[in-house]
Computed example of a mutant assay.
Amino acid sequence: MNYRLFKNVQVAEVGLGTWQLGSTDWGNVGEEEAMQILQTYVDAGGNFIDTADVYGMGVSEKLIGKFLKTQTKPIYVATKLGRRSDAPNGWPQNFTYDLMRKQVEDSLQHLRQSHLFLEQLHCIPTEEMRAGKVFKYLAHLKDEGLILNWGASVETSEEALLCLEQDGLASLQIIFNLFRQHVADEIFEKAKAKGVAIIVRVPLASGLLSGKFDENTQFEEKDHRNFNADGQAFNAGETFSGIEFKQGVKLSKEIKNLMPDEQLAQWAIRWILDHPEVTTVIPGASKVSQVKSNVEASALPPLSKEIHQQLRKLYDEEIFGSIRGHF
């Protein structure tokens, strides 16, 4: 495992996303398997885990909290707030200071921690970011010692640029992959200039870039790749990066043909890591085998300049115009 600098600590360049461990939007992952996933990741040298309070309404955080109590080496956990629907006025009225503080306190309890390494806004409405109060609240929570760093997970480059105007922003979490290449053009240099870490989510486009799906692949009823395939429940970009599924299968095959070998998932992650502005990429996993595959991307050599050029040509000519959802 290779590491990159996040503020003043070294974090694994391949992190672990844990939406799957909430057992709500990806099918069920039992506690024993969740613990094996977490342990496999750490045994491979991983030390950066991303979660959110709404992943199973605390389930993912609680599993991670239980796991952390078995570990002796430093593990840096990032969580997120802002999408809970159980606030007095429901979503999206979650952005008073008192409610944000309560959500931080709940995450601390779930994770069994005295402070959070990183708290992130969780794809909240653009107008809330534009108003600016949420950033002041996060800064205050940091001053209180409840969080060490704060950042934002965003849907669009517009939102990313809004966040980059905020003093104290530690990180941006974005969708960036072979189906979302333009993001690098729009925000990477600006983030680097401000010393803001880039956390990449949805690196495999909800599994499309694993190369293991075909046009007839079916997903479980409660899997977001079933109920949100066309953005029926939330932003289409969070599922298959906004690409229509059957088209995505076709495009994935074209991408695979450009890669050095058959390990598309690993090379898709390697492609992301070839961008030095990226701090860490956080592929999720519902199986131990997926964790092992994902972390192996850190040991791969960079892709050649020629392959990068071919992948960008394919993106510009066949992929970009097909993206749906907010981006």
Score class of each variant (00 low, 15 high):
E165Q: 15
L169C: 06
Q173N: 06
I174T: 07
I174A: 11
I174N: 10
I175D: 12
L178N: 11
L178T: 01
R180S: 14
H182V: 09
A184I: 05
E189D: 14
K190F: 05
K190Q: 13
A193E: 15
A193M: 11
A193I: 05
K194E: 03
P203Y: 10
L204W: 07
L204V: 02
A205G: 05
A205L: 08
S206T: 07
G207M: 07
L209Y: 01
S210I: 00
F213Q: 00
D214L: 00
Q218D: 00
E221I: 12
K222R: 12
H224R: 14
R225T: 01
F227V: 00
F227G: 08
N228K: 13
A229I: 11
Q232L: 04
A233S: 09
A233Q: 09
F234K: 05
F234W: 14
N235G: 04
S241C: 14
G242H: 03
K246G: 05
K246D: 03
Q247F: 13
G248V: 01
G248K: 13
V249R: 14
L251I: 07
K253Q: 15
E254W: 05
I255W: 11
I255V: 14
N257Y: 07
L258G: 04
L258F: 04
M259E: 13
P260L: 09
D261E: 12
E262T: 11
L264Y: 03
L264C: 07
A265H: 09
A265N: 11
Q266W: 00
A268H: 10
L273Y: 01
H275D: 07
H275R: 15
P276L: 03
T280G: 08
V281H: 07
P283S: 10
P283R: 08
P283V: 02
G284H: 02
G284W: 10
G284I: 00
G284V: 03
G284F: 04
V288W: 13
